[in-house]
């Protein structure tokens, strides 16, 4: 992806997101869940489980995965793909952290 083509939106600081937790960014196209791992990596997924639309932002974060609070589907934070044997995918958005500031792009990753 060409850097200049991406619109990065400042959404807050790393400290605003609890470690092994998540916050929600509310957009006109729906909620986006922002996750922070134990190693301070940040990921962004469409806040809707591919199974029955559960809010992933409310799930338990472990490793680089999140468990949906409704029926325990597990999704990869880096891709939005369900962990086998479940099958499904939710949109994944680019995020970057620079000097403690978290920036999000609303263009889903291909």
């Amino acid at each position: 992806m060409i850097e200049t083509m991406t619109d990065w939106i400042e959404i807050g600081t790393l400290e605003d997101i609890p470690r092994l937790g998540s916050r929600v960014v509310r957009t006109t196209q729906g909620d986006i869940a922002i996750f922070r791992t134990a190693e301070d990596e940040v990921f962004a997924l469409n806040d809707s489980c591919p199974h029955k639309g559960g809010p992933l932002s409310q799930g338990i974060v472990h490793g680089k995965r999140v468990t949906c609070p409704l029926h325990n589907w597990v999704l990869e934070l880096s891709s939005g793909t369900a962990v086998a044997p479940d099958q499904g995918h939710t949109a994944c958005f680019p995020v970057k952290v620079e000097d403690g500031m978290v920036r999000l792009s609303l263009q889903p990753q291909a």
Binding site: I9, V24, I34
Partner: peptide
Amino acid sequence: RHEFVPLKLVG
């Protein structure tokens, strides 16, 4: 408090 408010509203 962070549990109950969105991090950011966009658009």
